[in-house]
Amino acid sequence: MIGKIRSMGAKFGIAGELIAFLWERKLWWMIPSITLLLLFGLLIVLTEGSALAPFIYTLF
């Protein structure tokens, strides 16, 4: 349980760092669309669980 809480805490910390990073890179003008994309991405993750697409070359 403590491990899970710690892990969640770490993830919140990293998410905060990501927002700070976007702000610093002057990407604030994109925040609405990026937030939408991220929410959309989260939906994909929650609905699909894993990725097994036969990609030929991951650029990510």
């Binding site: 991405g41 990725a51 650029l59």
Partner: peptide, 14 residues
């Protein structure tokens, strides 16, 4: 690409 990238990034890479 976006769909696959999101799965990998939101689950692991970030």
């Amino acid at each position: 690409v976006f769909r696959e990238a999101m799965v990998h990034w939101l689950l692991d890479k970030l």
